Computed example of a mutant assay.
Amino acid sequence: MRNSRHRVRAAVALATAALTGFATLTACDASGGDSAAPGGSSAQDRAAPKRAPAWDTSPRSLAAVGDSITRGFDACSVLSDCPEASWATGSDDEVRSLARRLLGKQRAETHSWNYAKTGARMADLPGQMQRAAARDPELVTVMAGANDACRSSADEMTSVAEFRADFQDALRALRRTHPKTQVYVASVPDLKRLWSTGRTNQLGKQVWKLGICKSMLADADNMDRAATDRRQSVQDRVVAYNKVLKDVCARDQRCRYDGGAVFDFRFDGDQLSHWDWFHPSKDGQSRLAEMAHKGVTAARPRS
């Protein structure tokens, strides 16, 4: 009798185990399972998002593209470039350019290059990027867009759509040969604030009459409705350009936007060229270098 009951209990246990195993296998088949198939990967692994590559806070070479600001225009003498005072690649001890801060004095002389051009607009950036890429830099700095807003009239400003397409083309020009080069993008300066600050200087206003940023600076003391609306339209376009720079850069894993640092900076009389009261002086160039250095070496980009 005991043996009979023992055999019954054993049979029940075996049957229960079999049913449990069958249910487990069925559940795994229905869900696809958590384990990878032989030689394959699980659905969870396949769905995992790719991590963005780590940002190198100490690149060992640098190329700069952009416009007159990166060429140090009017930082040393009236209506002329002064690349040695450039915030990005300059050699001037007073400025302490980004290249000097990142690479040191000696290495900056041989491993930094300036392809910016006074008067350049965003449409010129793809060509500059190609020339910069030929140097195989670890970092490319971008500061462009002011000349797209600074035109003979507000009606001639580069459209936002064209600006976006040109900036995308510039990044593609680099990425075709250099997918891992980092790009640091500075925002377009607040042109309306520069007008507001510079218009207090009589000499500066006389230089403005030679044609500097007419869309914003023409008739500097005119405060009627038409002039006010014109300046505001330029300001609105600059804000739109900066949004483009932020959005396009965010789609590139190795691109970092300055978070509006240059646009937000309140240039005063010391930071503006005393030749034209619009472009940065050496002091202003040094402030740009300082902002860029903080942006490049930060663990995370400014939001």
Rank of each mutant, 00 (worst) to 15 (best):
V140I: 15
V140T: 10
E94Y: 10
M122L: 13
D166Y: 09
A165Q: 13
Y115E: 10
A133N: 06
S97P: 02
A154Q: 09
S159D: 03
T158C: 01
S153M: 11
A123H: 11
F73C: 07
A154Y: 02
A144P: 00
E156H: 09
G145N: 04
A75E: 01
E94N: 10
M157D: 01
C82V: 06
C150V: 00
R164G: 03
A146H: 01
G127R: 15
R101F: 01
L79G: 00
A132Q: 12
M143F: 14
M129I: 08
Q168D: 05
A132R: 12
K117P: 00
P83E: 02
T89N: 07
A75I: 03
T89E: 04
A133P: 01
S112F: 12
F167I: 03
F73T: 12
R135M: 14
F167G: 03
M157C: 03
S91P: 00
A108E: 06
E109M: 15
D169M: 12
W87A: 08
T118L: 05
V140F: 04
L98V: 09
T118Q: 08
L98H: 12
V142W: 04
Q106F: 06
V142K: 05
L98C: 05
A85T: 15
S112C: 11
S77T: 13
W87G: 02
V142L: 08
D148C: 01
A165P: 02
